[in-house]
Nucleic acid binder design. Structure first.
Lengths: 109, 109
DNA sequence: AGTGCGTATAACTATATAGTTATATACAGG
DNA sequence: CCTGTATATAACTATATAGTTATACGCACT
């Protein structure tokens, strides 16, 4: 099958999504949400990051569609929007494990 | 199953990989390599990007392990290192199509 | 050796953004 | 209302990097 052509606009949107995953702090936040829904305060505690910083990161993740949220009184509860983030990270981690295995093999020879 | 703990160093490495995919120009280059191996010159032609710019992007993609390369005289031939990049992009595109479908449904109601 | 071509690198500029500090908003309880 | 708490936002600084221009490197050909 011929490769679908991708417009600059589409490439920009895809890149924007990847960019949301391209920061250690945001990956840490997503990791904290893997088990269950959490409030911002719980995320602060789980990650040790600053409050304003986490708030901004959560906006980025929300805009990119990776997390959903609901208000409950003064709290905002955040959760993973779906399982795609986990799949993406697992794919990436799998790649890195393969790399590491190849390196080990190379040096063990 | 309990979530695996990820060290800051691991998160950094994963983020670095995602960052390599977080630029429209690099996605365009990967797209150009989807069909077949290409020289830098061919990539220049396919993408319309500047020579030095493409050379730098190719370094980033190579360092991140997404492309492999071989020298052949004055030419350097680049190719996708494996099919993971395509899977990652397809996963991401699938997400976006779901989003778009949801929006259409919302407004069509 | 000298020339031309393909690719990589250095140096620079402009832009984006992570993190911080300070402040604003919004809700809950007394 | 007033106070405290949870979260979001504004303003700022420091850093990273995309793109460009100029230059260096390496190979092929004569």
């Amino acid at each position: 099958m011929p490769s679908k052509l991708l417009s600059p606009a589409q490439l920009g949107l895809i890149a924007e999504r990847f960019k949301a995953l391209a920061e250690p702090s945001r990956l840490e936040i997503l990791h904290a949400l893997k088990e269950r829904e959490r409030t911002v305060s719980e995320i602060l505690e789980a990650t040790g990051l600053g409050q304003a910083n986490v708030s901004k990161h959560l906006q980025v993740l929300f805009t990119a569609g990776f997390v959903d949220r609901r208000k409950d009184g003064v709290n905002t509860w955040y959760r993973l929007a779906d399982q795609d983030v986990l799949r993406l990270c697992e794919l990436m981690c799998g790649r890195m494990e393969k790399e590491a295995a190849a390196r080990r093999k190379l040096f063990a020879g």
